[in-house]
């Protein structure tokens, strides 16, 4: 355990991360049909190299606790219902973010009978994070810009 903690402390020291500003946004993620690449990278923004929580950004378990709905993947016919349920469960004001090229509708999406389309076709999108998948740096950058605007 102590070696693990020392490895983590070394990474934190070498990464020279700043403390961030005292504000916060709560994120709720919904996978509407992604290839799991955006999920891996969204997970990586919480790893010791990025540690997005230090900026007051946190991924929360329920849409009822969230300010931002972060959606990955093209929206499949089988996920459009659960996606809208999650959106409707959020308190207002609420913000919708499209994470990755599929959610933005500019990728190889699939067959039209199984895919409704880009996130824009279902919900109005406030934050666009391009990339296939977007790197953890890019995700953090876009979310911090949103935090600065909020």
């Amino acid at each position: 355990m102590f070696i693990l903690l020392r490895q983590l402390a070394t990474i934190r020291r070498d990464a020279h991360l700043s403390r961030g500003r005292p504000r916060s946004l709560a994120l709720r993620h919904v996978d509407a049909g992604s290839c799991n690449g955006c999920e891996h990278e969204l997970g990586a923004v919480s790893n010791p190299f990025h540690d997005i929580q230090r900026h007051g950004l946190d991924i929360v378990a329920s849409p009822r606790h969230a300010d931002i709905l972060l959606v990955t993947g093209p929206v499949t016919t089988r996920m459009v219902g659960p996606l809208l349920t999650a959106y409707q469960a959020m308190p207002e004001p609420r913000v919708v973010a499209a994470l990755g090229d599929c959610a933005l509708g500019c990728n190889v999406l699939g067959d039209p009978t199984d895919v409704v389309g880009a996130l824009e076709d279902v919900l109005s999108v406030d934050i666009r994070i391009p990339g296939c998948p977007p790197t953890p740096d890019a995700i953090a950058e876009h979310l911090l810009a949103a935090l600065a605007r909020s």
Binding site: R78, G110, D111, T113, D114
Partner: peptide
Amino acid sequence: LFYKHRGLERA
């Protein structure tokens, strides 16, 4: 499963 079925094989 198959909530994320995108019909990739058919496409």
